[in-house]
Each structure stands twice: as structure tokens, then as C-alpha cells.
């Protein structure tokens, strides 16, 4: 499905993904250039969400490959369905049908496709999300950038498979370690940061329809203040902001006051060190004051 920049921009707002013009443009360019998009940024700014949103926009399935230490090609690319092959051998032994058993056993029927192969062999253009690529090992990263540069995969028993439609690939990284230059070179780079105040307000409104303007603004300002505080290590993410807002709504709060903040702040700050730091340096009173002042 070909899309113009304007159509992509409209689609983003249609599915409720609110972002800067630059983000839309970078995604647009990556799609046009047939290059993977490498998204970096702090946790909880919508990196993974981008994959889901693109799948929705392009009306295709989201193929997801979650990276972790020890992930290998078998888990990412393909495996032979050993059990099924074995059954086939047993059956043919009993029925006496031996003709070209070997060719049969290594046919696509017995192939268990893992995310990468699935994305490549699909007839339709797919969205492939390779999540937290910084968590995988370097060997796997090297293998990955080989696949991502020419979108071909070789399965020894079947030969080389070339992508019919080059998938839209999203790689996300939390920068737990520096990715190799080779992989970066093949990608278009996008850095997602926490949203600006106005954008955060827009996001809350889009995700929680019917919320009051005053509360929205106060929530956004409070979250911004927490993110800017140097004492808080794990900054509240957008998802946490939304959870917090929903909790406030459930408590029928129409504005932030010290009591409400103190009851619900653990939805935003999730470690003891951060909660201690919050109580010592900021406190529910100051935070609600900061949120109230425009």
C-alpha cells in the first residue's frame, strides 16, 4: 500500500498515535527508502507502540521478535518440525510408502517459521517489530543486519528465499549497550523522547476521551515536573501517565491535591529509592502546587 506523507500523518492521528511532524517524516522516509527504522529513547515513550500502530495503519499483522540474551537463529528464523517429521517416518514405515521421503520431509510443510522468515516469506507487506534489539548477543546482531540489508534468507534444505515484499521493520533499543555501526548504518534513526507538555496533554485526551481539561493539564504538568527532577531515576512513562490519569478518574478526582497525589503516586514511581526521593525533595504538596500553577 503506497502512502503519501499527508496520508501517513492523517493515519497516525486517526489511530491515536500523537507525535511530532519529524517522527512522521522519519517513518515516511524509512518506508519509502525500504530501510528499517531504529528507534531509541527512554523506556515508555512509545517505541514498541510504533510497531503496533504501523501494523494497524497498513492493515497487516504485526510480526514481533522479542530479543533477549541467548536468542539464536533457530528461534528467530526457522526450525524443522522434528516431531512431525518423525511421525511421518513412522507412518511411512508402517504403510510401506518410502518414495522420496527425504524430499518430502524437508518441504515447507515441515518448516516452523519464526518471525524473521515469516516476515520475509509473506505475500503481503508485513510490519516486523524487533523489540529491544540491544538485549540480543552480538553474533545475533551480526546475523540480523545481514538479513535486514538484503532481505534474503537461506535455508540449506530449501535454498535461498528472497522477500516478495520488503517488510516494514522497526527495531527498538533501550541503549543497554551500544549497537554495532553496521546495524545502525542500515537503519534510519529515530530518537523518541518524552513528549512536550502540550503533546502530552493531547495524548491523554486522545487516549482517555471525555476527561476534563483542567485535570489533563495538571496531570501533564505534574508528570513533567517529575521527569525533570534530577533525584528521580526512573522517569514516569507515557503509559504510566495514562494509568495514573485513569486511577485519578476512578477516584473521582477533578484536580490534583496533596492527598490524592500521595495516594496514587506509586502508579508513577515504582521503586523505593524514587519514592523516598520524591517525598524528600518534592512531596505531594509541592507537586500539586506545581501542577496547579500554569
Amino acid at each position: 500500500m503506497e502512502m503519501t506523507l499527508k496520508e501517513l500523518r492523517d493515519s497516525f492521528s486517526r489511530v491515536g498515535y500523537i507525535c511530532d511532524e519529524e517522527v512522521v517524516l522519519t517513518v515516511y522516509l524509512a518506508i519509502k527508502l525500504n530501510k528499517p527504522i531504529l528507534i531509541e529513547g527512554p523506556p515508555g515513550v512509545g517505541k514498541t507502540e510504533m510497531g503496533k500502530v504501523l501494523a494497524e495503519i497498513f492493515q497487516t499483522e504485526l510480526i514481533r521478535l522479542q530479543c533477549y540474551e541467548g536468542l539464536d537463529e533457530n528461534k528467530a528464523l526457522y526450525e524443522w518440525n522434528y516431531q512431525r517429521q518423525l511421525l511421518k517416518i513412522q507412518i511411512s514405515k508402517e504403510t510401506g510408502m518410502q518414495a522420496d521421503l527425504e524430499g518430502d520431509l524437508f518441504s515447507p510443510e515441515y518448516l516452523l517459521m519464526r518471525p524473521l522468515l515469516k516476515a520475509i516469506s509473506s505475500e503481503k507487506r508485513q510490519v516486523l517489530l524487533i523489540d529491544e534489539v540491544d538485549k540480543c548477543d552480538e553474533e545475533f546482531e551480526a546475523f540480523l543486519f545481514e538479513v535486514l540489508s538484503d532481505f534474503t534468507v537461506s535455508v540449506p534444505e530449501l535454498g535461498t528465499l528472497k522477500a516478495k515484499e520488503i517488510p516494514i521493520v522497526i527495531l527498538t533499543s533501550n541503549n543497554e549497550r551500544e549497537l554495532s555501526d553496521g546495524l545502525k548504518r542500515r537503519c534510519v534513526f529515530l530518537y523518541l523522547d518524552y513528549p512536550e507538555l502540550q503533546r502530552e496533554i493531547a495524548i491523554i485526551r486522545a487516549r482517555i476521551p471525555g476527561i476534563e481539561e483542567k485535570l489533563t493539564a495538571q496531570v501533564a504538568r505534574a508528570v513533567k515536573a517529575l521527569r525533570e527532577s534530577p533525584d528521580i531515576k526512573k522517569k514516569p512513562s507515557i503509559a504510566e501517565t495514562l494509568d495514573w490519569t485513569r486511577a485519578l478518574l476512578a477516584m473521582n478526582a477533578d484536580r490534583l491535591d496533596p492527598k490524592v497525589v500521595s495516594q496514587t503516586v506509586n502508579l508513577l514511581l515504582k521503586s523505593k529509592a524514587d519514592l523516598d526521593a520524591f517525598r524528600r525533595h518534592l512531596g505531594p504538596g509541592t507537586l500539586s502546587e506545581m501542577a496547579a500553577s500554569s
Binding site: E22, L25, T26, A30, G41, N175, D181, F189, L190
Partner: peptide, 16 residues
Amino acid sequence: PSQARAALRGTLVKKA
């Protein structure tokens, strides 16, 4: 200019 900037930024800079 914002479009040109985004195009160059996404393709040339790969480190936050």
C-alpha cells in the same frame, strides 16, 4: 526546512 532537517537527521545521525 523542517522536512530537510528531519531527512538528514534520520539518515546521518545514528547516536542520540
